[in-house]
Design a protein around this nucleic acid. Structure first.
Length: 270
DNA sequence: CCCGGAACCTGAAGGC
DNA sequence: TGCCTTCAGGTTCCGG
């Protein structure tokens, strides 16, 4: 699933090919319609515009347009952006094709059709917490977000208002690295634990970016390459495997509807 | 405001 | 072989 490292990888790989490019045509393929404005209108409004820059905010991709406005894309669970040559074939899961004047096409592929494409007045996304790798994120701020919260720490980490970009895989990895049980109440973390968690979040995300993201399920890089972050995962998607630290079998619990893997010995509930 | 569960959506995998 | 259920998870909506 595309989380911050996957989206960052897409932005870095795609940006040089789209920056400054004119959009010559936009094709949105039914039954995909998860757009705002509706597909035909979006296609019409985007055609003829030029892309000033490609940016990331949390898990959102932002195609900033010259003259104002932006195309904001969220890949949700199964979305991918692929860089293709003009005239490249589409498949059953291609939802949109954006053709550029340099002969490239951006193919938006999304098996589950939950991804979104929106034209916005400006390039900011509202309601998101700080960037985990940005200046605005520090241990004090994280502590403040967790203070007096009774919800499980895992649920708070997945809430994009707390922090923008963490998803299920990297949240599990960060909690393991910080030796914190996913069901611990957010407000119960000590200052020391919050500091450990802060460092762990940054490290797992940086590692993920270096690896080009994690190619589990449908994630694939724009050029067709795979990410390798899954090879570095210590607990994510590893239910039943031995803990890399102590060898205890990793356990699995559902937190807010999300499967969470953890080591019962290294991540005690108290 | 805070919290948890359902819904959205499709394909893979497992049970019978 | 084939039907049915469960699982996967980012975000939004809704109810307590």
């Amino acid at each position: 699933m595309p989380e911050l490292p996957e989206v960052e990888t897409i932005v870095r790989e795609l940006a040089p090919h789209v920056k400054g490019q004119h959009v010559t045509s936009v094709r949105i393929i039914p039954p995909y319609s998860n757009t705002n404005p509706p597909p035909q209108e979006l296609a019409k409004l985007l055609t003829g515009r030029s892309i000033a820059a490609l940016l990331r905010r949390g898990k959102y991709l932002i195609f900033k347009l010259m003259g104002g406005g932006a195309l904001v894309v969220h890949l949700r669970m199964s979305g991918a952006l692929l860089l293709k040559k003009a005239g490249a074939e589409v498949n059953n899961y291609t939802r949109a094709v954006i053709t550029l004047e340099n002969g490239s096409e951006i193919h938006f592929r999304d098996v589950r059709r939950l991804g979104t494409m929106c034209l916005a007045e400006d390039a900011t996304v509202n309601g998101l917490g700080p960037e985990p790798l940005g200046e605005g994120f520090n241990p004090q701020g994280l502590a403040l977000m967790l203070k007096n919260r009774r919800a499980p720490i895992k649920a708070l980490l997945l809430d994009q208002r707390t922090l923008a970009g963490l998803g299920n895989m990297y949240a599990d990895e960060a909690l393991f690295q910080a030796s914190i049980h996913p069901l611990r109440a957010g407000g119960s973390l000590t200052d020391e634990e919050v500091k450990r968690l802060y460092r762990a979040i940054q490290e797992v995300l940086q590692r993920g970016i270096v690896c080009g993201g994690a190619s589990v399920d449908t994630y694939i890089r724009p050029g067709g390459g795979r990410g390798t972050a899954q090879d570095c995962f210590r607990v994510a998607h590893k239910r039943g495997s031995p803990c890399p630290t102590c060898g205890t079998a990793l356990e699995w619990v559902k937190v807010r509807g999300r499967g969470s893997c953890f080591c019962p010995r290294c991540q005690p509930t108290e």
